[in-house]
Amino acid sequence: MAFLKLAGTVTKRMGMKSACYMYPVVAREFTKTTRGHVELDSADCIYCGLCQRKCPTKAIEVNRQEKNWTIQPLRCIVCSGCVDVCPKKCLRMENTYSSSVTSKF
């Protein structure tokens, strides 16, 4: 029988600095591997449309005639599948996430 088993831990924590990252005040450094959002270096892109075909959520739209590449961040599941299949390696996974929006379009 042990009463107040956590009392030691909680009193110890009181003297310590909080474990909080203090996010909005202190900016968060993401690791290199973090999957945040997809970015395109349009200079190298040949608009082959492979990423569009492989995207599991159909978030990417490629228009070969107009040389247009768009991604809907509200559909992207950041699986990085498109980055893997890109033949020209011009898609990048950035480690910052896409920001929230107040309207969908």
């Binding site: 996010y23 909005p24 968060r28 961040p73 509200l74 992207c76 599941i77 950041v78 699986c79 996430y97 896409s98 920001s99 929230s100 929006v101 107040t102 309207s103 969908k104």
Partner: peptide, 24 residues
């Protein structure tokens, strides 16, 4: 009122979204 993207949405982006929601 606020859409937060991400799969799964990161806690940081949730905090950002909620702060945006406070303005609304």
């Amino acid at each position: 009122d606020v859409y937060i993207p991400g799969c799964a949405a990161r806690p940081e982006s949730i905090i950002d979204g909620v702060v945006k929601g406070l303005g609304v």
